[in-house]
Design a protein around this nucleic acid. Structure first.
Lengths: 340, 340
DNA sequence: AAGATTTGCAAAACCAATTTAAATAATTTA
DNA sequence: TAAATTATTTAAATTGGTTTTGCAAATCTT
């Protein structure tokens, strides 16, 4: 490995002080134009590499932002992450990604790591049952947080997510409008704010339409394509003979659709299915999925901006910000046909 | 924000020196057992947070490993990343992830960032046309690299990937064995080692079976589900009337299958399609996809171990390491039926 | 031309740890 | 009991930047 080039190497080379080199490289007006140019040229051809940890030791700004979500490979987060990435990119922040797989401990470890690295802030989709004190600890140590997709009770920090109750009501109303009366709710659970909100949206839409709410029409649990696929058996053998399903998300819906196919029924004809999220997959699945866009790109972008705002001192973005979802009608839903 | 607790805070509190505190916290045998215990207790209840950047300034080990791939949201990399993650986790290295989207510039920026952060090493799936000098620069600055999934010419560093030519030959031979004579090759391109190897595997398998190789049976380009879907039109209107397709990867295959469905034909009956990679999706798609497992988990695990080995000084893992793929036969392939 | 400003650079303190050599205390040996 | 040895602890140098303050030279006032 070549001898390491540092500020003092450049300074010695040019016969100036490290202070001057430091200031010049950061375009400070305190150094004369041609000195600056000479220094920059030297830095370039000596192969100088800026040492961020040395710098951040003094400035206490590391240029690192942490991002934690349930599972970065989950396409729902993928779109949020893309939006965050492009927003952070332009402000020259490096971001460190991690999954917590809904383990509070893993999330805690990651936050600790971020603190050790001196991360400037963190954007997180909190793990289920995250105690507010975990996040307060981060904030108390100078690392502001912004939440996405889920809320944490008793915590007044900026939170961005889709309006789940409203969004699921859109899907439910769409099915009701097609004449369906026995509509199942497939997937998710009650242990997150999202879970409760979505189920509430479904229940309220049914009630408003004067339909009976049957708790047996709920299939709690599924969140993945695989689980949606497996849920089909259960769904199709219900004594209530549902003709439609409001699914937790697109993945569950696509899995359920595949399962319904396997059982010999035609989704989008015999059975209507709605998804949630409007992933890219939804538009190219067979049949194309009727679903609800949940504002992922908006959530990511606004959360990133909110964090950057907090980093630059403004603190006016606290509280919950709900993004309004939108209906996307495709071929997986159709007028009701009674199941025999 | 509470007053920051550092080594000296603890030292003052207990009336010892920072040297002692530092040594104690890292379990050095140089400090007496009960002193160590007292220090650890104090650190804990004073809420001490280890400052890694200060430490790494002195030790020149940051505990950071960079990982760059084409697209972390791509499920192919997802499995590799999971394997890398679990391997690095146990050695207490933090990893920083990034996409390069096949932009050499973006990759270069990320490598620069890693150098600035003092990353200990990097695992990368190099962007198309990565100049070997980009990687040499990293190595010259004390950041060893390990390659995955793709090779870079003129570079003798550890590289782990599936044996693409062999794997595609498995798929091609499977179709030949089912009686297919007109077999298209859908997706990928010639500008990566992977692309060339896969096409070569297909060509050689055909030749060995005495079948004619028709360059018009190649649909170059598609790599995603969306693109596979769009390629179906092209594929179905070929004058050579192919009855089967060897696809670039599972995503292209699944997209193609959906496109074939749309056109009114039945994949797995009228048309046989093979995928590549054996993603989780492959087993639950409709019909379940015949594909080739490309050893992702193996690639990730071995690459991570190789890097850790390099970090601890051993340098005996250089060169190319090919993982042997395996055939997974499911329902998307069937004996040949002539297309009319 | 003398005094007041402005400009350009450097000296030195600082950030929070690690590490080595040296000092001190405790124990063992002769 | 004095000397030798061993066990603990610490002072001080080090890592690579940033930033404040001060000083000298250059430029501007009147």
């Amino acid at each position: 490995m070549a001898q390491k080039v540092k500020l003092s190497t450049i300074a010695d080379q040019l016969g100036v002080s490290t202070a001057t080199v430091s200031l010049a490289l950061r375009d400070s007006p305190l150094v004369a134009e041609d000195t600056r140019q000479k220094i920059k040229d030297a830095a370039l051809d000596m192969g100088y590499i800026y040492n961020r940890r040395a710098a951040s030791l003094r400035t206490s700004r590391s240029g690192i932002v942490g991002v934690v979500v349930h599972d970065i490979m989950n396409p729902f987060y993928a779109e949020i992450l893309k939006a965050i990435e492009s927003e952070l990119d332009r402000s020259r922040q490096t971001f460190i990604l991690s999954n917590h797989y809904d383990s509070v401990q893993k999330q805690r470890d990651f936050l600790e790591t971020l603190l050790q690295l001196g991360a400037d802030g963190v954007i997180m989709s909190p793990a289920i049952d995250t105690p507010s004190r975990d996040i307060k600890l981060a904030e108390d140590n100078g690392m502001p947080a912004v939440l996405i997709a889920r809320s944490v009770p008793d915590l007044d920090i900026p939170t961005y997510r889709g309006d789940d109750a409203y969004g699921i009501a859109l899907a439910t109303n769409h099915l009701i409008g097609l004449g369906h009366k026995s509509i199942a709710f497939v997937g998710g659970a009650d242990n997150t704010s999202t879970g409760r909100d979505r189920y509430r949206g479904y229940v309220e839409a049914l009630k408003k339409a004067g339909l009976e709410v049957d708790p047996l029409l709920r299939v709690s649990g599924p969140r993945t394509k695989q689980e949606g696929f497996e849920a089909a058996v259960n769904f199709l053998s219900m004594p209530q003979k549902p003709t439609a399903a409001v699914c937790w998300n697109d993945l569950v819906a696509i899995g359920l659709i595949n399962g319904v196919y396997r059982a010999g029924l035609i989704p989008g004809k015999d059975i209507s299915v709605t998804g949630y999220d409007d992933l890219i997959e939804a538009s190219i699945s067979m049949p194309a999925l009727t679903t609800v866009w949940n504002g992922q790109s908006m959530v990511g972008r606004r959360a990133a901006r909110a964090l950057l705002d907090r980093l630059s001192g403004s603190d006016e973005v606290n509280g919950l910000h709900l993004i309004k979802p939108e209906m996307r009608i495709r071929q997986s839903t159709a007028p009701m046909v009674p199941r025999t």
